[in-house]
Amino acid sequence: MFVTRKAEFSASHICRVAEWSDTQNHEFFGEEANPSGHGHNYVVEVTLEGEPDPVTGMVIDLKQVKSILEEEIVEPMDHRFLNYEVPPFDSIVPTTANVAREIWKRLEARFDSPAVRLARVRLFETADLYVDVIADSEMESALDGELAA
């Protein structure tokens, strides 16, 4: 069974490669590279997979999920400038994909019990743009093999 919990944070960022000139960055990233930065209301949906406990009827206590999301995502990222205040975005570009993958990395370490595993992180940068990081399944790998063949 899958359980999804949502959290929100608002943050600013700039998408630019440090080694490139302002012109190069602007040509590549467009207005995402504007030098003073800009912000988004990010929405993150975290999906966990597990079986309901026979006694409590819960896959996981959502209070616990809420506090983990608070500690790992909201507290460090909400109302921050990602490039300047939230490592590793001092050294990697805080694109939606990179922020989603960082959130995955942080949460994976917290949901490491055999009973409950992290299945998906979906990060909305805007209502019309989101990135999914999804646990690799054996089926997906088999499908990739079939495609490559």
Binding site: A97, L129, Y130
Partner: peptide
């Protein structure tokens, strides 16, 4: 795996 989805109308 990582995917990106964009919505259009």
């Amino acid at each position: 795996m990582t995917t990106l989805t964009a919505r259009y109308r």
